[in-house]
Design a protein around this nucleic acid. Structure first.
Lengths: 222, 222
DNA sequence: TGCGCACAAATTGGCGCCAATAAATGTGCA
DNA sequence: TGCACATTTATTGGCGCCAATTTGTGCGCA
């Protein structure tokens, strides 16, 4: 499923997502040829993805022997959420001064597109319009490398190739967060904007499978 | 040259460093087989590295045609320095409460090792001991994923496989910054520590080749 | 019965060959 | 002389085969 027009397929994220979804259990061996078949991917791409997953600690690599799923570390996901908060707060702070009436209209349109996707779009529509909404804000940060890093770190934390909400209620909550964010931008209220951004990130933790018995979200934040 | 014991060779950083050093000019084609020979690397690793460099914008990829050096963007380096500042300030803030007398002694030893390397060590010694010094501080941050991201972003900005100082004076300045950092930690002065960290990162910009006529450092910072 | 050694099995990793593709170049015609 | 089309060139990218390496298993001996 091709979600967004990206330069290349994020196979590492896809395999990582399958691991987080429980398709591959800790300790299980991942054979290159099996992954080629399961993901309809070429050998080079599978090896590249496994190299990246090994570098990030999601799998372990035994030379000439294979790759093995590592014990999942949900603490890493929580830490990534904290990093996201740090980066997106800074990106939002930099972006706000550059958001005029025209830009605000674009952001509102993107927010509406997500609401439409929540109501009657596919999962891919929801993922696309969600990412587009956030990008419509952060693209106005003067530090474009920061804007790109925000996307990259968000992709790292994500359990699959696309963002998935476990329930309609979670989708609606995300949509409500988006409204808070837009309202804060319209009011030019940086404090409210940052508060909404932090809240949105923290509560997005609830979208992760509860590997250790309770959702990653719903914890008190800094 | 094997610098530090890392899990795998950072070929992308090596090739990127060669580009930044002027070994490959903007517009020049990079042939996979040439890079295999130049860096004594296997084809898979060269292709992986090129894929990463294309993703980061340092080279452009024409499918089935080749990889070409992109026009260098020193603005990206400046933006990365700003991101480093953001991340390392947070990592230092998290680490300080966890640095007791024993940890401080370790940090002082690491600082002394760098000074020794400045005085009579090889370039590799200087790079190693510099990285070891910073890691000796950030490893105490509770968010270990942040500590790792700090290293990763620092590697991205670096022009070569190892950190290089253009002159003895720059080395001494780095050593002086390290002293400031250690003094601030000993005094448990977070404000002074963060100021020293920011200054250290900003002035490290002077270590980059001045592609556009003037060093990246020596600019007023935030 | 347990240990050590040899061999087998499994998988990765390297490599050579060739298909695929994009651009460059040459040729013919208007 | 310029344009269009065909051919050539250059490089990537895919793939199959096999070497390399690690672990598992079986057998023999103390």
């Amino acid at each position: 499923m091709k979600v967004r027009k990206e330069q290349k397929r994020l196979l590492a994220a896809e395999i990582g997502g399958a691991i987080l979804q429980g398709d591959y259990r800790p300790g299980e061996w991942l054979r290159q040829i099996d992954l080629e078949e399961a993901f309809a991917a070429k050998r080079f791409d599978v090896r590249s993805a496994l190299t990246q997953l090994a570098a990030s600690g999601m799998v372990t690599h035994v030379e000439n022997r294979g790759y093995r799923v590592a014990q999942p570390d949900y603490n890493v996901v929580r830490e990534i959420l904290a990093i996201r908060s740090l980066l997106e707060v800074e990106a939002a702070t930099q972006a706000l001064p550059n958001i005029g009436p025209t830009e605000l209209d674009d952001i509102k349109r993107a927010q509406q597109a997500f609401e439409d996707a929540v109501a009657r779009g596919s999962k891919a529509d929801q993922a696309n319009t969600n990412a587009a909404f956030h990008d419509e804000i952060y693209r106005h940060a003067p530090n474009q490398t920061l804007a790109k890093l925000v996307v990259e770190i968000r992709n790292r934390a994500r359990p699959g190739p696309i963002a998935l909400w476990p329930s309609y209620a979670e989708l609606q909550r995300s949509a409500a967060h988006h409204v808070e964010i837009v309202d804060a931008i319209e009011a030019r209220d940086l404090h409210a904007l940052l508060k909404a951004v932090r809240r949105h990130i923290l509560e997005s933790g609830a979208n992760y499978p509860a590997g250790d018995g309770h959702p990653i979200g719903h914890r008190s934040a800094d």
